[in-house]
Design a binder for these strands. Structure first.
Lengths: 137, 137
DNA sequence: TCATTCTGTAATTTTATTTATTACAGTACA
DNA sequence: TGTACTGTAATAAATAAAATTACAGAATGA
């Protein structure tokens, strides 16, 4: 996971948790995160696909949590936004004529998968409720 | 860690381990990794600064491991190449007028630091020797 | 000694990725 | 039926990563 999507999604979820069921608009949330509202809407679609939030179209629409904050683990959130490999490079196209180059991707992927699995189980020990509780208000 | 530096550095180290003390040139290693030799040389400088390799200038020069492969942990390698935060975004400049935005970086950083610490201790359980041994030759 | 083969390093260009912007259709409300 | 939203596509701008070019300096050995 190489981009700001984890931070954006977590920020969204904290805002929704603090809103206690009140619908928040993407424009409002974009103002808090200080990013473009379209990015918020895209993340909301992903969060909705994962079952974390529900959203309502039309006037007075917006988003709210779809489940209790203690049912959303940070590991699940991580998995929902990860795109590239944890440690992975963009391009990795080693020389197949070299004995090391030929096999390294297989071994790197095994290492990455193993490491990522442990990272996720680590993150799964914390929920959105835990994280949200760190905010004083 | 968001780029291919971990993969590149590990590839270099495996090549050097398999070379058993014979000096390898950056051009040769770049050919195996299939990247530009200048990138290899830059990584070698970092690896040398970390005490993992030694390099020799001039004709018949090149690089070799500075210490035994079982003394180089993958956690130390990870630390040597990490630049950005593990889960961190490029830009993260939330609105300080929002109570959540005002505090979120503090809490995100605590989460990132904690998670990264555990990732590194996980990676520290594996050495270059372990990884290199996965290659059949 | 001097051509050769390396490393070290800076500067620049190219490519890839991420983020922002613009635009607009569709939905729901009041 | 205007207004305030979401959903979504297309494009542009900004940023980051990688490649390229260039060359100085070091060590070798013919």
């Amino acid at each position: 996971m190489n981009n700001g999507r984890f931070a954006i999604s977590l920020h969204i979820l904290v805002l929704l948790d603090k809103a206690k069921g009140e619908l928040l608009s993407s424009d409002y949330m974009a103002g808090s995160i200080n990013i473009n509202p379209v990015l918020v809407r895209k993340e909301l679609i992903n969060l909705r696909d994962q079952g974390f939030v529900v959203s309502k179209e039309g006037k007075n629409g917006g988003a709210t949590l779809a489940k209790s904050a203690d049912k959303i683990t940070l590991g699940a959130l991580y998995e929902s936004v990860k795109s590239a490999h944890l440690l992975g490079s963009h391009k990795n196209d080693p020389n197949p004529l070299c004995e090391i180059g030929r096999d390294i991707n297989k071994h790197l992927n095994a290492l990455y998968d193993d490491t990522e699995r442990k990272l996720i189980s680590q993150l799964n020990q914390q929920t959105l409720a835990d994280f949200s509780a760190r905010f004083s208000n």
